[in-house]
């Protein structure tokens, strides 16, 4: 059977207005497959402007790719008919960053759960609706009597974010795209939300695309990782290997900058070269050129992915003794 979601050479460019020719490539030639038969948690990491959210918007069908195609069970998602579109909307769910903005403050939080039940006609009686809601809330570790009937401002950020996860769970999706789901939640509550995401993956067989800039939480929940920088894949592979033994200079910088809650592991002395926005960017070639401490003449040509091991590849010429791997085969690198 065709995979549930497949990106084939997808690029997204934003142009700056009607007259200006200048444009920004937010995502550059990405190919990726998510298979429903092997549920996984995949992290997409990178700093602001790396194209993480653009990828989420493309997968959710909110944006159309500028080139390349996205397939849902083998069908182009921009050309789905009405019934396929409904099932796509149901199978691919989102959890967004801001647990405050998604609620309408005039309705009790039940509204967020009852609307999808009505839209997708999941229940025909009030009792059935109630039991579906309770079941979904239990799935994320909340008790219905604690939250139902309350207004958003009466709940904590962590509770609200778990209701969002419950809403996604309610529809029994195949894929959840979680765009920075814990970045606005207190550090002490992050653990509970990540735990419920992992439970969805294990118990309900849901694949999760975890989009974040926080590599510590990614390390704890995910199986695989793709590191993006200005729309290009810098490094990809097994999360354990990539975090413990990063090979691309950008991944090293990212991991070196994590504020580890560990006094023996202070921020490295490695100077951060060039300030963001002041660093020049090459039109062709490696996007990280301006900030890279190892930048060489040949980096002005776009570097291919070099496969370092079965589950690790980096797009950097310092590894050019290794075998090249086509960007179409990115999925092969990612363990499930």
């Amino acid at each position: 059977m065709a995979p549930i979601l497949e990106l084939r050479n997808v690029s997204k460019t934003y142009s700056r207005g009607l007259i200006s020719r200048a444009s920004t490539t937010a995502l550059d030639n990405l190919s990726l497959t998510l298979d429903a038969s092997t549920p996984t948690i995949m992290t997409v990491a990178g700093e602001s402007g790396s194209g993480k959210t653009t990828l989420a918007m493309l997968l959710l069908g909110f944006l159309e790719p500028s080139s390349g195609q996205i397939f849902y069970y083998g069908k182009d998602i921009t050309k789905l008919d009405a019934s396929d579109r409904t099932s796509f909307r149901r199978d691919v769910q989102a959890v967004f960053q801001d647990p405050f903005a998604v609620f309408n403050p005039f309705y009790p939080v039940d509204h967020l759960l009852t609307v999808p039940i009505q839209k997708f006609k999941l229940a025909n009686t009030a009792a059935k609706t109630r039991s579906l809601m309770e079941e979904a809330l239990n799935g994320v570790g909340l008790r219905a009597e604690d939250v139902l009937g309350r207004f958003p401002h009466q709940l904590s950020g962590g509770q609200r974010q778990r209701i969002n996860v419950a809403r996604a769970l309610l529809l029994k999706p195949k894929v959840i795209v979680a765009d920075e789901p814990v970045s606005m939640v207190d550090a002490s509550l992050r653990a509970t939300i990540l735990e419920s995401l992992r439970k969805l993956n294990r118990e309900f067989g849901i694949s999760i695309l975890y989009i974040t800039h926080d590599l510590t939480t990614a390390f704890h929940v995910a199986n695989s990782i793709i590191v993006l920088y200005r729309g290009q894949v810098m490094e990809a592979g097994d999360i354990d290997t990539v975090i413990k033994n990063p090979q691309h200079p950008y991944t090293r910088l990212l991991i070196d900058s994590i504020p580890w809650p560990d006094l023996s592991r202070k921020w490295g002395d490695s100077e951060i070269k060039a300030r963001e926005a002041e660093a020049g960017e090459l039109l062709t070639g490696c996007k990280f050129y301006g900030r890279c401490p190892f930048a060489m003449e040949k980096c002005k040509q776009p570097p291919p992915l070099f496969r370092l091991s079965e589950h690790q590849a980096a797009s950097c010429y310092i590894h050019d003794q290794h075998e090249r791997i086509s960007t179409d085969k990115l999925t092969e690198l990612l363990p499930t």
Partner: peptide
């Protein structure tokens, strides 16, 4: 302090 993610114990969470 216990709720902090730890590099050594992957996948272990302690919420409060």
């Amino acid at each position: 302090i216990n709720s902090l993610p730890d590099l050594k114990k992957r996948g272990v969470f302690h919420g409060i």
